[in-house]
């Protein structure tokens, strides 16, 4: 509770069962592949402080159960998420085909401004690939998502996925597009930010917004 950071972002990891959501989270936090992981029931957690554009950002990551039947359960954890990793498995078209449902759930229940990065996981299993990079990147473009192919096994692009998502949220805060003080923004000021930013912050977003336009 005493760690120092500028912002806290609530993140979700969502997507079909068995796509590697928990393993991505574990790889991000522990820097190793969790080979004994069980399927997630309800929700699990991870948090990590990362440095993005000179700001210390604490990511509080909610890792959800994937089976469709539990969607009504996991939805109750969506509220007020600032960012999300939307995960599919590149070796399973089935997990890719359901992306739109996850997407509309996230946008409807978390917040309209939620920043989502699409993660095509299991990149290491290229021989069994069922979804091409091109196809998924088109989908990402059409739906205004960032996109990376990741491997929770090797760690490739795992940190990047979280960092890119966090960076985009920070950019949106700085441009005034996101107001951290709005209810359910999924963003909180940390101790460091409270100390340094309290007074000048009031005037800042207005100015920044004008610069952006």
């Amino acid at each position: 509770m005493s760690e120092s950071y500028d912002f806290l972002f609530k993140f979700l990891v969502i997507g079909n069962a068995g796509t590697g959501k928990s393993c991505l989270l574990h790889q991000f936090i522990e820097k190793r592949f969790k080979d004994e992981s069980n399927h997630t029931i309800g929700v699990e957690f991870g948090s990590k402080i990362i440095s993005v554009v000179n700001k210390m950002v604490k990511l509080q990551i909610w890792d959800t159960a994937g089976q469709e039947r539990f969607r009504s359960v996991t939805r109750s954890y969506y509220r007020g998420a600032a960012g999300a990793l939307l995960v599919y498995d590149i070796t399973s078209r089935e997990t890719y085909n359901t992306l739109t449902t996850w997407l509309s759930d996230a946008r409807m229940l978390a917040s309209q401004n939620i920043v989502i990065i699409l993660c095509g996981n299991k990149k290491d299993l290229d021989a069994d690939r069922e979804v091409t990079f091109l196809e998924a990147s088109r989908f990402a473009q059409e739906n205004e998502l960032m996109f990376l192919e990741t491997s929770a096994l090797t760690g490739e692009n795992v940190e990047e996925a979280f960092v890119q998502c966090a960076r985009k949220i920070l950019n949106k805060i700085e441009s005034g597009e996101l107001d951290p003080e709005r209810m359910g923004s999924g963003i909180q000021y940390g101790d460091a930010a409270l100390r340094q930013l309290r007074s000048p912050r009031r005037a800042q977003p207005q100015g920044a917004q004008e610069c952006g336009c």
Binding site: R69, F70, R71, S72, V73, R75, S76
Partner: peptide, 8 residues
């Protein structure tokens, strides 16, 4: 409230 048990 939006209950986890009221699933589709």
């Amino acid at each position: 409230f939006d209950s986890p048990d009221s699933g589709l």
